[in-house]
């Protein structure tokens, strides 16, 4: 077997398949040069493992408040965007309602709030469809409600 110095890191990391690790170890038994290199790299490997990361890194305050402020708490933009979508959808629904046969003025928002007749069911489905497609805005609304419930 050729020298195995290029596999010693993987051996130390226990990343070699069993049969390869066995072959490398067998070579080390018979090759003083590779064995010496293995011992030196092994000591370096152990030193690296003992070079603890600064405990301060683990004891530092959580980044969550700052991250939250930069992401989920910054809802003003999304709230405005969601409101824009709502206004657009409402306007579109009213226009469609006036254009369709059997629908007349006056359905509008009142119908969408649940006071629907059989002929108005299309409008309800329009609202529901919009609600499903605007996942992003819906998600933010949901997140807002969960936040208040969690008290976080």
């Amino acid at each position: 077997m050729n020298h195995v110095t290029s596999r010693l890191g993987a051996l130390l990391a226990e990343e070699l398949p069993d049969h390869e690790a066995a072959a490398v170890r067998a070579h080390l038994d018979s090759c003083p040069s590779c064995r010496a290199e293995h011992e030196r790299l092994g000591r370096t490997w152990a030193l690296l493992g003992s070079a603890e990361l600064p405990a301060a890194a683990a004891q530092a305050p959580s980044v969550w408040p700052a991250v939250r402020a930069r992401t989920v708490a910054d809802r003003s933009h999304w709230g405005w965007r969601g409101a824009s979508w709502a206004v657009a959808a409402l306007a579109g629904g009213v226009i469609l309602g006036m254009a369709l046969p059997g629908s007349g003025p006056g359905i509008g928002v009142g119908s969408a709030s649940g006071d629907l007749t059989a002929d108005d069911s299309w409008l309800e489905s329009t609202w529901l469809q919009w609600d499903r497609t605007d996942d992003l805005a819906a998600g933010w609304i949901l997140a807002g409600s969960e936040q208040s419930e969690d008290g976080s």
Binding site: S62, V63, R68, G139, L142, E146, S152
Partner: peptide, 15 residues
């Protein structure tokens, strides 16, 4: 989906 509680949990788990 924008769920804050889930995001907070992930941040605390991995930070």
């Amino acid at each position: 989906r924008g769920e804050e509680a889930a995001f907070g949990l992930l941040v605390h788990r991995w930070e």
